[in-house]
Simulated scan of single mutants.
Amino acid sequence: MTWIAALPMYNVTPALATVWREWLDDVLRRVSPACHIVEPDEELHGFWRRPNVLLSQTCGYPLVHGLNEQVQVIATPRFDAPGCAGADYSSVLVTRAESQFDSLAACRGARAAYNQDDSNSGMNVFRHAVAPLARKSAFFSAVLRTGSHLGSLRAVIENRADVAAIDCVTFAFVCDELPELAQKVRQIGLTAASPGLPLIASNNVPRATIETLREALNEAHRTQPERAKRLRLKGFSALPLADYERIEQLENEARAAGYAHLV
């Protein structure tokens, strides 16, 4: 079997994507030099389920909604970013820098943007934050699905939406790489925390190789401190799958409050 790998999640700019690819190549050379780094040519749900994925990264929401049956969690990165605590992360609630909104509660009747229906950081924790404010009714006047966190930021900046929830790691990278965008929005809150985006492998990867991958992650981190700083990496945690049940808990709390959908 020819192993493949890809890191599709935090490539905020082409320059940052290059650094992530260099990091991934370093990790793989320590584990399986013949593994091919690829650009997924299909939607990510299909890619993550391919039987020859040696290393990739997914969102926790699809992980707990069926993907966990076909993949193994290798490790969860710990990031140096405001809104992160250990291997947990939150989302930053943002509005335009010049808008009148000073809190999420003040956004009743405003327009929301979110990235994807299956995003924990862009949709699930956003829904959870709105749920106690909505009082079992529609909270926003319109909801726009943008396809990405950068798309949501641009929707807010371009006055196509008023508020969005942005993965705090993504937002930290935007501040680093695209400061002109970051300066056009203002933070008005932070969502509840949950485990961060896990690194995963196919169930076909032997357990011994999973352990070798974990060792390679830590070694690549230790030997390239400047690169780790650029990628805001503090290290990796081997979280049990049960920790990701926190994501379902947030979903269930929103549903119990009568707010099943971001509306």
Rank of each mutant, 00 (worst) to 15 (best):
I74A: 02
I74Y: 03
A75Y: 01
A75H: 01
A75E: 00
A75Q: 00
A75N: 00
T76H: 08
R78G: 05
F79D: 08
F79I: 04
F79A: 05
F79G: 07
D80F: 12
D80H: 14
A81Y: 08
P82N: 12
P82C: 10
G83I: 11
G83N: 08
G83H: 07
G83R: 14
C84Y: 07
C84A: 13
C84F: 09
A85H: 04
A85D: 05
A87D: 12
A87E: 11
D88F: 13
Y89G: 11
S90M: 02
S90Y: 00
S90V: 03
S90D: 03
S91T: 08
S91G: 08
S91H: 04
S91N: 06
V92D: 07
V92A: 08
L93N: 03
L93A: 04
L93S: 05
V94N: 05
V94T: 06
V94K: 06
V94M: 05
R96K: 03
A97L: 01
A97M: 03
A97C: 01
A97F: 05
E98P: 01
E98A: 08
S99R: 01
S99I: 01
Q100N: 12
Q100G: 13
F101I: 02
F101Q: 03
D102L: 13
D102W: 13
D102R: 15
S103N: 14
S103P: 10
S103F: 09
L104Q: 10
L104P: 09
L104A: 11
L104E: 09
A105P: 10
